[in-house]
Design a binder for these strands. Structure first.
Length: 290
DNA sequence: TTCCAGGTATGCA
DNA sequence: TGCATACCTGGA
């Protein structure tokens, strides 16, 4: 990968496995949207636009320091995705097809706190509404950032949200999840470091800890572990994954989530999370099993 | 009007 | 443990 500094952007040449469409539409993040030029998102207190130009990737509104301090880690650029895909493709022909379809997927290293709240909101919800609800929360409780004449908002801290108002959260579109968000925010605010230190714990211990937060069940816990705490062995089982696995691997036979997860983690090992993303994107984009 | 959507909490056997 | 049921909300 070649890193080229431009006036207000960073241009990446020869990046392995980096397709914005795949990365931002594979279900791992909710705050990225295509604005006609590229995908714009807010990460920490930065607004950035990711543009695909031929084989180059442009990070608009970034300097070289931010690239090394924030974006390299966020976009998982130190990982060899070609090797991961090569290893997973040997598992079976279904996986091979899914990888070919979502070849530019990367698993982002997102903020655990934001990921925790975002996936609590995702439960029994639809993607459109999840995104709108999160934006509403940011607009009410986050800090305003202006870029190119447009307003963007940061994701509020645990302390800010812990002092939030149930009625306001309800008006943001949280629905019955308002109380889960408020309770979880209070628990995290009481010991913020603990959430971030889960990265250093074994998968099982981190999983059990996350289940203690209200509104967090096995699926949400696995999403937080995979998308923000570096646990690549996590295999979140949602309706799409269940559909595609039952349809393609088990002839449509019903499999319970626990068994499905155990089978997948056994089959794909430390690469289970990557396998999940390729399967999820393949299933949802092609409406497989529905 | 009714149903459904990236699950979870709750109650009961 | 395992299973059934209710749950905000808004768009189809």
């Amino acid at each position: 990968m070649e890193i080229i500094k431009e006036q207000t952007a960073i241009r990446l040449k020869n990046v392995d496995s980096f397709k914005p469409l795949h990365i931002f539409e594979c279900g791992q993040a909710f705050r990225w949207s295509f604005d006609g030029y590229g995908y714009v998102g807010v990460v920490k207190d930065r607004v950035i636009r990711i543009i695909e130009e031929g084989t180059d990737i442009i990070l608009e509104n970034s300097n070289i320091d931010d690239f090394h301090n924030i974006w390299k880690k966020y976009f998982d650029l130190d990982r060899d995705y070609s090797l991961i895909k090569k290893q997973l493709a040997t598992c079976d022909s279904i996986m091979k097809k899914a990888i070919s379809f979502g070849h530019g997927i990367r698993i982002l290293n997102q903020d655990p706190w934001e990921t925790l709240i975002s996936f609590i909101i995702s439960a029994n919800n639809n993607i459109d509404r999840i995104g709108k609800t999160i934006e509403n929360i940011c607009r009410v409780y986050g800090d305003k950032l202006i870029w190119q004449g447009k307003a963007y908002y940061t994701f509020p801290s645990p302390q800010i949200l812990a002092n939030g108002d149930m009625d306001i959260l309800r008006k943001c579109g949280c629905g019955y999840r308002d109380k889960y968000i408020l309770s979880t925010a209070n628990m995290v605010a009481a010991d913020v470091n603990r959430l971030y230190e889960l990265r250093n714990l074994p998968y099982d211990e981190a999983f059990e800890y996350l289940l203690e937060f209200p509104g967090v069940g096995p699926k949400v816990a696995d999403c937080v572990l995979l998308f923000s705490l570096g646990k690549s062995e996590a295999f979140p089982v949602d309706v799409w994954i269940r559909r595609i696995v039952e349809y393609l691997y088990f002839n449509g036979e019903d499999i319970n989530s626990k068994d499905l997860k155990r089978l997948a983690m056994g089959k794909f090992g430390d690469l289970a999370g990557f396998a999940q993303q390729y399967l999820f994107y393949y299933a949802r984009e092609n409406n497989i099993g529905k």
